[in-house]
Simulated assay, not measured.
Amino acid sequence: MEIVKSSGEKVKFSMFKLRNSLKRSGADEDLINLIVDRVRDELYQGISTKEIYNRAFALLKKKQSIFASKYKLKKAIYEFGPTGYPFEKFISAILQFSGYKTEVGKVMTGICVKHEIDIFAKKNGAVTIIECKFHSEEGRNCNVKVPLYIHSRYMDVKKHWETKENSDLIFNVGWVATNTRFTEDAIQFGKCAGLYLLSWDYPKDDGLKDRIDRLGLYPITVSTLLSAREKQFLLSRDVVLCQQLLHDKFFLDHLGISDSRKQRIMKEIELLCNR
């Protein structure tokens, strides 16, 4: 059975991939079997991955919203759009929970020109600069032009940094982070040029989705109880992680949310943050 991806590419339907994505949501084996059987019964030639996702999501949400929240992780990151700024804040927050001290939008001097760097990070006596490439539309990947461009900026800043006297911080490898995927050429160039690439599923077992699941750092947009307006309000206040809302519950008061609904939302948030 052929299905159509968001990019328009036709691929064979994989029961294994569907099962794996459902397992990541935390659903038990009985529920996974139920959803797989339902989806399989409704398959037809040329069905879109979006239709398959919507069906599985609806069934998960009907059984338990926390499973649906985790299942919609990839889609939730697209909801950061249309600008890439919330995604930069999101990557910065993930790095902070990994022991980095970060600044977003720092202006740095290069040998040739000045550059506004998406994320400036420090850890263990080393400096890392991270450039983020956010796509708000599904099906768009980062081709080789992205790491090529970012590598030239990285080298300009690095050369200037190394002219500074008495700097006690080592200039570390540059990063490129995206919410989608890199093409094979982009990965090959990254390896050759010494850039660290971070995408939805790269590096293997340590991509964005793996880090989020491992650290419990889910974006606020995964919530199935908050409305789109409420999510945008929180993002505009730099609340990008569920972890942040645990400590900044007062933002829900600004939204005029009732006590009973607030309790349901906070219960969902607590479950998401519980690793």
Rank of each mutant, 00 (worst) to 15 (best):
G8N: 12
K10D: 02
K10W: 02
V11G: 08
K12R: 07
K12P: 01
L18T: 05
S21V: 07
L22R: 09
K23S: 07
S25M: 09
S25D: 05
G26R: 03
A27S: 15
D30I: 11
L31F: 04
N33C: 13
L34D: 10
V36F: 00
V39I: 14
L43G: 03
L43T: 10
Q45F: 07
Q45D: 15
G46I: 15
S48M: 11
K50G: 05
K50Q: 13
E51C: 06
R55S: 11
R55F: 03
A56W: 04
A56M: 07
S65C: 05
F67T: 01
K70L: 04
K70Y: 02
A76L: 04
T83V: 10
Y85A: 11
P86D: 11
P86V: 12
P86H: 11
I91L: 09
S92P: 06
A93S: 15
A93G: 05
I94K: 02
I94D: 00
I94L: 14
K106T: 15
V107Y: 04
T109A: 12
T109Y: 02
E116N: 12
A121T: 10
A121D: 04
N124C: 10
N124T: 09
E131V: 10
K133T: 05
K133L: 10
K133C: 08
E137V: 13
E138W: 01
R140T: 10
R140A: 07
N143L: 05
K145R: 12
V146F: 08
P147G: 09
L148S: 13
H151G: 00
Y154M: 09
D156C: 11
V157S: 04
H160L: 09
E162L: 14
E165F: 04
E165I: 11
N166T: 04
D168R: 15
L169E: 09
I170W: 08
N172I: 03
G174F: 06
T178H: 06
N179G: 11
T183C: 11
E184Y: 01
A186D: 06
F189L: 15
C192R: 14
A193T: 08
L195R: 10
L197V: 15
S199Y: 00
K204A: 08
D205Y: 13
K209D: 08
K209A: 10
R214Q: 11
R214D: 08
L215P: 02
G216C: 06
Y218E: 06
V222R: 03
T224K: 14
A228Y: 08
A228R: 03
S236D: 12
V240C: 09
Q243T: 04
L245R: 08
D248V: 07
F250Q: 13
L252G: 05
G256E: 09
S258Y: 00
S260P: 01
M266R: 11
K267D: 11
E268A: 04
I269F: 00
I269H: 00
I269L: 03
E270T: 03
E270N: 03
E270F: 01
C273Q: 02
C273L: 09
N274T: 11
N274C: 08
